[in-house]
Structure formats: C-alpha cells, structure tokens
Computed example of a mutant assay.
Amino acid sequence: MKHFQINVSISHFGFFLFVALLTSCHRYFVPASHQYTQQQIDSTLTPDAAYMEYYRPYKQQLEAEMDRVIGHTDVALTKPSNVPETRLGNFFTDALLAEGKKQYPDAEFSFGTKGGLRIELQQGDITIGNLFELMPFENELVLLELSGKSVQQLAEFIAATGGQPVSGLRMKISDGKATDIAVAGKPLELSHTYKLITYDYLANGGDNSRGLNSPVSRINLGQKVREALITYVSEQTQAGKHINTQLDGRIIHDQ
C-alpha cells in the first residue's frame, strides 16, 4: 500500500493536484469491521459546559434576531377550522400575491392551504421568530400559468375542503361545490389562462391540492415563502402601516 504525506504549508495548487492523484487511482476501500456506540439522549445527559460556552454567542445572536420586531398587527390573525375564510389566510395570501407581483405584475391570484400555516398571530408585535413559526418550511414561491379548467378544479378543491386561503379569487360554496368564481374581479372563463402565485409544495401536489399538476407553464421565483412574509410585513412598517387584515367575503357559504 502506498503512503502519502502532505506538508501543512502545501499550496492550493499542490493540494488540488494531490486530490487529483488520489481520485485517479481507482482504488476502493471497505471497512474491515464495524463498531459503534449508542448514545442515549435523555435527561440523564449532563450539559457540556465547554460546548455550551462555545455556542453561546451564536445562540444569543440567533435569539436576538428571532426576537426582532418588524411589524405590528392591530387584529389577531386567526384561522378557525370551521369557516371558509380566515384573517390569517387572507394575510398570508395577500402577502404572497403582493410579493409575487413585484416580479410578475400580471399575476392575478394566490393560493395556500390552512394546514400549511402552523401558528396564529396574536394582536400586537410581529417578530421574525413569529414568521418562522408560521411558515417553518423551506418552501419557495412559484408562478403557475393555469388554464381556466385548472382554476375550476382548484376552486372545486377549495369548496370540497370548506375553504382555503386565497387572494385575488372570490367564490361561493354551495353544497360543497364552487359557484360564482371570479379571478381578479372578473368571472372565470374556462377558455382563458390565469397566473397564480403559490409555493412549490402545493405546486408539486402537496396537501392533495387539485388543479395545479398540469400548468401551462411554471416559473420558480427564487424566494422562500418565509422571506416573502418578512419582506411584506417590514415594508408595511416602513410605510407607517400596521397589519389590519379583515374578512372581506372572498369565500362564503351560499345559504
């Protein structure tokens, strides 16, 4: 077996040359034996003071950032499960549509799901940490161009599930079916195409959503949903505004 020795002062070029020599040998290694130690993670573990001291500055920095106030909501942003429209859902999809329109001003509506929103926001200050808790996933915004028939399918999914967060779309739910569907203030036309802002999890079929799996086109916007929320709230604050999301009848039960 050949032995190699690297001088610690080796140049970058020399190091990459050494790696090239190693990877060009086509030699494979397999372990002669397997040994492992199982570590139980429970209350019997004692804190490692040295390690805690090592990461303390990072922990303090992270906590300071998560506690940073970036906005204020004048109303509690809640999401009751037994109603078709919620303040939290309206806030969420209004933010998505506003951020999506920065890149694509002709985007017409946005869509999310109640299950994707993990906490409610209480009346008062909004922190970075609040928005991380609201959307803890690494989902990214996407623009989907949908046929009118696909929008109809999406509306039927919304109706069948008792209502989901939307912005730019209005509809009624009658006996579990979608009626009076309008996009960007105009009645839905099956022959038209529409531009939707949503996020990759739903665009990929998450939450059993319907109508999104066969878009005319799809563009990834390169922005995480959480970043969009942070930007939206921060810009409202910079403009001297509080979040004051109301119910406006965008989805109603037709009695």
Rank of each mutant, 00 (worst) to 15 (best):
V183F: 03
F157L: 02
H242A: 10
T46Q: 13
R226K: 14
M52G: 05
L131R: 09
N208V: 03
D207L: 01
T37N: 10
N213V: 11
E53W: 05
F111E: 04
H12P: 09
G116V: 06
I173W: 11
F18D: 09
K241G: 01
H12G: 14
S147G: 12
Y54G: 01
A184K: 15
T73E: 05
G14T: 10
F137V: 05
G129M: 12
P47R: 15
L21V: 11
F4Q: 07
K186D: 01
T193N: 07
F29M: 04
P47W: 13
I173K: 05
L143V: 07
Q122I: 10
S217Y: 09
T46K: 03
A20Q: 14
D207F: 00
Y199F: 15
E99C: 07
G205E: 10
Q246E: 10
Q164H: 03
A50K: 14
L202Q: 06
Y28L: 13
E53M: 11
N139V: 09
S24A: 15
I219P: 00
K114T: 05
S209I: 15
R170N: 11
S150L: 05
A98K: 15
A160G: 04
A95E: 02
L121I: 15
D67T: 13
D207R: 01
G115Q: 08
P57G: 13
E227C: 02
L17Y: 08
N82F: 07
L196G: 03
P84C: 01
S110C: 11
Y194A: 08
V83M: 02
D248E: 15
A64V: 12
G222L: 07
I70Q: 07
S150K: 14
G14L: 05
K79I: 02
I119Y: 01
S214A: 14
G249I: 06
T193C: 08
I230G: 00
V8N: 05
D180T: 12
Q5H: 06
Y51P: 01
G100A: 07
L202I: 13
G124Y: 12
I230H: 00
H192A: 13
D207A: 04
G168N: 10
F92A: 13
A107P: 08
T161Y: 00
D94F: 04
I119S: 01
N220V: 12
F109R: 01
L212M: 15
M171Q: 09
M135L: 06
K177H: 14
A95W: 10
I6F: 07
A49I: 13
V183E: 03
P31M: 15
I128L: 09
M52F: 10
E120Y: 02
K114Q: 08
K224Y: 06
K102T: 11
P215A: 11
T86A: 00
P84H: 04
G112T: 05
Y199W: 14
L131F: 06
G116D: 11
A20T: 12
V183S: 00
G185C: 09
I10C: 12
G249E: 08
G71M: 06
S167W: 06
L88P: 07
L117Y: 00
F91L: 08
R210D: 09
R56D: 09
E85L: 05
Q38P: 03
P31F: 10
E63F: 02
A20W: 12
P187I: 13
Y194Q: 12
